[in-house]
Simulated scan of single mutants.
Amino acid sequence: MSLFVGLFMASTGFTQASNDSAAGITYLAEVYRPFIYEQEGEPAGLAVTLLKLIWQEMDVPEQPIEIMPWPRIYDSGQWDRQVAIFSVYRTRERENHFKWVGPIARGRQALFCLRSRNLKLRSIEDMTGLKIASLRDTASTSKVLQTGIVPTCATHARHAVELLRSGRVDAIALDEARFRHTIAAMGLSARDFETALILSEDSLYYAFSPDVDDALIARFQRALDTVTARQAYRTLLNSYNN
C-alpha cells in the first residue's frame, strides 16, 4: 500500500470501537513541531502520522489523540493506567519510568544564547554561574540539573526565548527542533542566536506507562520496525526535515 493511500485511510472516517488492547490506551501528546502540532483542529506531524501507520500495520482502528501541556502529559504517563505519551526523549534518567517503542527520530538538547553574548562553552563545567531557563520535566532540564544548576522554569518555549532576549537569563536549555521552530514562529532571525553547548543527542520514542502489557509493547515495536523499514517512512521523514 502506498504512503498516500495509507494516510488517506488512516485520516478518514470516525474512530472505530475495537476490542484490541491497543484501543484501550489513552494517547497523549503536546504541540512539539515538527513531531506533533494541530492542523485544522486535528493532531498532525511526523509522530502522529507514524503512529497512524503503526495502527494500520497492527490492524487497529485509528484512536483519539489528546493534545495538552507537557507537565500534565508527563505526570499522566508515569502514574495513570494504560497511557502512551509522545514524543519523549529516552534518557537514562527516564529509562525505568516507562516502557518504550521507537525510535521515532533523533534529536539534540542544547544551550542557546544570544550571539551578542559570545558565550564560549567547551563543557558542562563552563555552565557554572550562568542563569539558565528551561521547561519543566523536559530532558533539557534534567541535563541542567545534573550540573547542580537549578534553572529558571519557563512556562513554554516562547517564554524561555523572551527571558533570554530580555537579559534575565544567560542561556536557555531546549530541544533543538523546539528552539528553531519557536524563534521562527516569533519572527526572529536565527542569526541573532547561537548554540553555546550541545548537552546530549538522544532518540525520541513513544513512552508507555509501566502497566501496559509487555506483549502489546512488543506488537507496537514490531509494527514500528516494519513501517520504518519501508522507503515510504524515509520519504515521510525527509518531508518533515525539509
Rank of each mutant, 00 (worst) to 15 (best):
E38I: 14
G24Q: 10
S209D: 12
I124K: 07
Y74Q: 13
A173N: 07
R234S: 08
F98H: 06
L163T: 01
W100V: 02
Y37Q: 13
A190G: 02
L197P: 00
M58F: 07
A207I: 12
G13L: 00
T91D: 15
I132K: 13
Q56I: 14
P34M: 10
G77A: 15
L163S: 02
P103T: 11
S166K: 10
R115W: 04
L28K: 07
P210E: 04
L145Q: 08
F86V: 08
M127T: 15
G167Q: 02
G13C: 00
F4N: 03
R230S: 14
R191M: 05
I73E: 12
R108C: 11
V169W: 02
I67P: 13
P210W: 05
D126N: 03
S21L: 03
T147P: 02
N238Q: 09
M58T: 11
A196S: 08
Q63D: 05
S140E: 10
Y74S: 12
A154M: 00
A110R: 09
A17P: 01
A223F: 15
I104K: 12
W70V: 12
D202S: 06
T141D: 07
G102H: 10
T147E: 03
D213L: 07
P151L: 07
A177R: 15
L197A: 04
R90H: 12
E95K: 15
V83P: 06
Y37C: 11
N96K: 15
E62K: 12
T128W: 09
Y32E: 01
N96S: 10
I25P: 00
R234G: 03
